[in-house]
Amino acid sequence: MHPSHVIAELLKLLAASLLLISFAMLSRRRTQRLITLFAWQGSVLFISTLLVAYSAGLTELYYSAALTLLLKVIALPWILHRLIQRLGAQWDSETLVNIPTTMLVGLGLVIFAFGLAQPISRMATTITRNTIGIALAVIFLAFLMMITRRKAITQVIGFLAMENGLFFAATSATYGMPMVIELGIALDLLVGFFILGIFFFQIREQFDSLDLSNMEALKED
């Protein structure tokens, strides 16, 4: 078997596990478990980026793989763990929509994503083109998680997972974005994350909980 075939098959496997992790995230209630899954998602992303970098021979992609490892596998999960410990928010209570329904909606979204990706993957020339549908599905599922969760911290994890999906879409469709953009996004992510971290404390101080439904009181009549 030719090495590039092996890599392509491996990439498909990794993509499938990415999707699986996304579903797992959708079904989890414990925030702690969610963060672990997010770190797993990051490491799958790291490996897949490494593989693409190796097969395409692009040094830039090695850098972005390193960035992924540093930021999404090590730094962010660690900060998140610290954060939930300080906030005492290891448990995510109930979701807005019950979990089986969410999973069903998620299934529908995956089918939609695959349908959507078909014309795009026909145009793409990379060896990873079949995975565009999965990347889109990961974005949708992360978005769905943001909608259905109540606690502010899970919203942030959803937001980060969405970025993972975008990153995967970029590597699978066009061998990654230009380095400048990637660095910019990484910085954005970090800054956004810190701002949200500050918000958590503010929200908790204001409402004595991280439940976002309290924020309805802010609306002006």
Partner: peptide, 14 residues
Amino acid sequence: LQGGRLAIYLLYSF
């Protein structure tokens, strides 16, 4: 449209 619920706002963009 502006109900004040974050989930609803996210649903709009979704």
